[in-house]
């Protein structure tokens, strides 16, 4: 029976039509974890994330949020379950026809009874949390890629979610910006007490923030390792996992130390 873990994935198979992307995925994300889904490019990390938030349907298997079966829930119940979830998409996915403040405000308008002035105030707070104070009335195309990511984060935390999903947070960012984003993720988790699930192949990030992880292998089409990233690097029996994680020894050490 599903226990007290935050997210439980049981026997999940992901497929596009007849093409099986990953099979036999079994893992638990505990409350407060920073859970890293890692693996080489194109192995299905982002697809796994899409399954976790209900954008793709599993070919087989189940996903639980707490004790509740997410896979078999109906649309209305899913919406309710997802209300405690925030997602930062790979491209930021800000609504391009709205200003940053409107982007952050939309979920607040939809799901709270706050008055417009109060919503505006909360939106400003969220933007200032990610270092975008004063950018309320900018449109997404007027700011840089790194700022868009942060604005996306502000929107993701608009409703104080219990789980935050990050799809390749550092993709397309320079090392400094991506380090800052990592720090921000850590900071927000500390202060909000949220569970974080990150899809990434950036070793620096993996070691800097990950408390638990799984490793997806495109050749065997399943997960071949799970555990804290540092432990996997030092003790994994699987050469593929060690090779993947040790590649970062030179680049990643300072961050780890």
């Amino acid at each position: 029976m599903p226990g007290d873990a935050h997210i439980i994935v049981r026997d999940l198979t992901m497929a596009y039509g007849d093409f099986v992307l990953m099979r036999d995925l079994d893992f638990r994300v505990e409350r407060g974890d920073i859970f890293v889904i890692m693996g080489g490019s194109g192995c299905g990390k982002s697809t796994l994330l899409r399954h976790l938030i209900g954008l793709n349907e599993p070919a087989k298997g189940e996903i639980f949020y707490g004790r509740e079966n997410f896979t078999s829930a109906d649309r209305a119940r899913r919406v309710e379950l997802l209300r405690s979830v925030g997602v930062l998409y790979q491209s930021g996915a800000l609504w391009s026809s709205m200003t940053l403040a409107e982007n952050v405000a939309l979920p607040l308008q939809e799901f709270t009874d706050l008055r417009p002035a109060q919503i505006r105030e909360v939106a400003s707070l969220k933007l200032s949390l990610v270092g975008l104070r004063g950018f309320e009335d900018y449109y997404p195309y007027q700011i840089s890629g790194g700022m868009q990511k942060r604005a996306g984060l502000a929107r993701a935390i608009a409703l104080d979610p219990e789980v935050l999903f990050f799809d390749e947070p550092s993709a397309g960012l320079d090392p400094i910006s991506s380090k800052r984003l990592d720090d921000l993720i850590l900071e927000l988790r500390e202060s909000m007490g949220a569970t974080v699930v990150v899809v990434t192949h950036e070793l620096a990030s993996i070691f800097a923030i990950g408390t638990n992880s799984i490793f997806l292998d495109p050749e065997t089409r399943t997960m071949i390792a799970s555990g804290p990233p540092l432990e996997l690097r030092d003790r994994s029996q699987d050469p593929k996992v060690r090779e993947f994680l040790r590649r970062g020894r030179i680049g990643g050490m300072e961050e780890v130390a």
């Binding site: 919406v79 309710e80 997802l82 997602v87 609504w95 939309l106 979920p107 939809e110």
Partner: peptide, 8 residues
């Protein structure tokens, strides 16, 4: 996707 996951 962002709209959908937000329940909109």
């Amino acid at each position: 996707d962002a709209l959908t996951t937000m329940g909109i």
